[in-house]
């Protein structure tokens, strides 16, 4: 059963806003970060944001684990398509 705690969801929201801001910071302050570092940091923040939204707002954290596996398979296929297709022209 998913949580009904507004406090918990508010904390997640604050974390999401912070992570979104971090992406912006990575690229705005390019004197501190190389493009590759900013890219990696942004993708890391995006992954964390996605995990927070799906885990807490979509309640996957409290659901049957099989749903997580289902979504993981879908994500894996999408990444496979992207990686293999892109690599094929390098």
């Amino acid at each position: 059963m998913a949580s009904d705690s507004i406090k918990l969801y508010a904390l997640v929201y604050v974390a999401l806003v912070g992570l979104a801001t971090s992406k912006f910071v990575f690229f705005e302050f390019d004197q501190f970060f190389t493009y590759e570092q900013a890219f990696a940091g942004t993708m890391g923040a995006a992954a964390l944001k996605g995990a927070l939204i799906v885990g807490y707002y979509q309640h996957l954290k409290w659901e049957n684990r099989s749903l997580t596996y289902l979504m993981a398979v879908a994500l894996a296929f999408a990444l496979l398509l992207m990686a293999a297709a892109t690599y094929s022209i390098t």
Binding site: L70, M71, A74, F77, A78, L79, L81, M82, A85, I89
Partner: peptide
């Protein structure tokens, strides 16, 4: 709904793959 979303992951995944490709 979750099955539908899994399908939509591929739809957007294909669009994003197209952009990256």
């Amino acid at each position: 709904m979750w099955f539908f979303l899994a399908s939509d992951v591929i739809v957007f995944g294909a669009f994003i793959s197209a952009a990256v490709f």
